[in-house]
């Protein structure tokens, strides 16, 4: 069971993609989750549904629309063209953008649940102790929701690692640029290289198992008083 140079490249690419997507989603998903958990707007319903769409939508459908949007004639494509970046499809950053959408619910939903579990009271207490809402968010809400952040990050990372359909639609299969581990395995199987498919598949299997184990081990007592 030996990993080839291109396997290692694919694994490294996968980890880089998942890491960047998780970091970006921490920044983007946190305010969305906060707003969904605490906002009172009528828009919560529709926005929550849009965020959850990738859970039910076939990845190829999501990938198809993203491809159109990011293509040279799509709104995003025109925008990136104007910026001088060029079209995003079939680039690493195109994958990142697509994965951010695809993995959004895995970041937002655990965070939303964690924020909802905190309730109003600790934030009211913080307000009566002179903390502004932003101050209270960082010093009370974030520490109390820390287990939620951990769960959300692990889920997002793992889910991005396992992505396949969207990658194929947006990224294609360019070695070193968009050929992530799951696509590499697909390639091996297509070419009937079962031994190599086995090695890489085993790596992903073990990784997934370890992630779920980690989630279980760290399944934290949320620091609540009795």
């Amino acid at each position: 069971m030996i990993l080839t140079e291109s396997d290692l490249q694919a694994i490294w690419l996968t980890l880089r993609l998942a890491g960047i997507v998780t970091a970006l989603l921490l920044l983007i998903g946190t305010p969305i989750a906060w707003w969904l958990a605490r906002g009172k707007s009528w828009w919560k319903g529709p926005v929550g549904a849009v965020v959850a769409l990738p859970l039910v939508l076939p990845p190829s459908v999501l990938g198809f629309y993203l491809l159109l949007a990011m293509g040279p004639d799509g709104p995003v494509g025109k925008f990136t063209e104007a910026l001088g970046i060029g079209p995003l499809p079939f680039t690493f950053w195109g994958l990142v953008v697509a994965s951010v959408f695809y993995s959004m619910p895995f970041m937002v939903q655990p965070l939303q649940t964690a924020f909802e579990a905190i309730g109003d009271r600790p934030l009211e207490v913080a307000a009566t102790l002179r903390a502004s809402p932003l101050d209270a968010f960082f010093t009370v809400a974030v520490p109390l929701a820390l287990p939620g952040f951990l769960t959300a990050s692990i889920m997002t990372f793992a889910h991005t690692v396992g992505e396949f359909g969207v990658v194929l639609m947006i990224g294609g299969n360019l070695p070193g640029t968009t050929r992530v581990a799951s696509v590499q395995i697909y390639d091996y199987v297509e070419a009937l290289k079962y031994a190599q498919a086995h090695s890489l598949a085993a790596v992903l299997l073990i990784f997934s198992f370890l992630v779920l184990l980690a989630l279980h081990v760290w399944r934290p007592n949320p620091g609540k008083g009795r």
């Binding site: 009211e124 207490v125 009566t128 903390a131 502004s132 809402p133 109390l144 008083g225």
Partner: peptide, 16 residues
Amino acid sequence: HKRPLGYVFQEASLFP
């Protein structure tokens, strides 16, 4: 948070 008051809630609400 800008009012110079102290507030004690019904159930002790220490930050856990």
